[in-house]
Design a protein around this nucleic acid. Structure first.
Lengths: 150, 150
DNA sequence: CGGATATCAGTGTAACTGAAATAA
DNA sequence: CTTATTTCAGTTGCACTGATATCC
């Protein structure tokens, strides 16, 4: 059933962690390609913009916790977004340890364009699945994430 | 329903590519931790050993195609496995461009130990799912991989 | 003081790119 | 001459670690 040397060995093909790695990588590439068409650089840029649009202004630490992005990496991401004028960071006067990160006008506009591309990438990714299977997959992944901890 | 600033924004929480990235990362960590307990270094070492055990000796190019690992990365992986005595590389006398990679006795023994740990990691990963949901997840991921191309 | 925040410098893994040398 | 294989040298995105200065 599987003696084509170009096929992954059955042991791996049925290994959930391996399947996840491959599918996630494929998805990452689809999204990255989609974002690149719009001048977007990293997938995490999109995540940060989306979080700010949804939650409103937040401190860097809160953003990091919400997005499961390390404080250190987030710092670099925000510096890039700031340089592009998509977010603004100002010291919080009520707690001067914090930076309040806000989405700029340009950031909101960029997010809308990126969003379309990202949704398109999801469509490509899920194309092989029936509508019922798509929601089923989302449900199963969400269930795994719930108990994933950090 | 979701105003905890420590929760990922709904937009991302329901984004398949984001879910996949997070779950795959979680899985990778579980597997890496499991392998580390047995002296294993990288997840891909396990994949190479498993492929050799299943398919038998193969050239590097064939291995790379089967495992979806880049020729360049595979070269480094095999050098490490070779240094550990888990695989042997010898020139193919019938096609002197090729290296025939074989699993050594020690490699077979190591694979058995690693395999137990990897299976344990899968159990941890899938613990939140019912048995039916686990096979369903594998089915959906396999379906996505089928049409993933490279 | 302890605890949280932002910042800075560095590591590790995986994925990828481009090019060379060798052999079919 | 073209193609395939191995090898080498580099880059990038992402995740993570540890340390420091600042502020509550």
């Amino acid at each position: 059933v599987n003696d084509d040397p170009d096929d992954p060995p059955g042991r791996l093909r049925e290994l959930p962690s391996w399947q996840l790695a491959q599918v996630a990588n494929h998805a990452a590439r689809l999204v990255a390609d989609a974002l690149a068409q719009e001048g977007g650089r990293r997938r995490q840029h999109y995540a940060v913009l989306a979080a700010l649009a949804e939650h409103g202004p937040a401190s860097q630490a809160d953003l990091g916790r919400a997005l499961w992005i390390d404080r250190s990496d987030l710092h670099a991401l925000l510096a890039e977004l700031d340089a592009d004028g998509l977010v603004a960071r100002v010291r919080d006067e009520r707690d001067r340890r914090r930076n309040v990160v806000t989405l700029t006008r340009a950031g909101g506009v960029a997010l809308k364009r990126l969003d379309k591309r990202v949704q398109g990438a999801q469509a490509k990714l899920l194309a092989p699945l029936s509508p019922a299977d798509r929601t089923e997959l989302q449900r199963l992944l969400a269930q795994l994430l719930e108990r994933a901890g950090r």
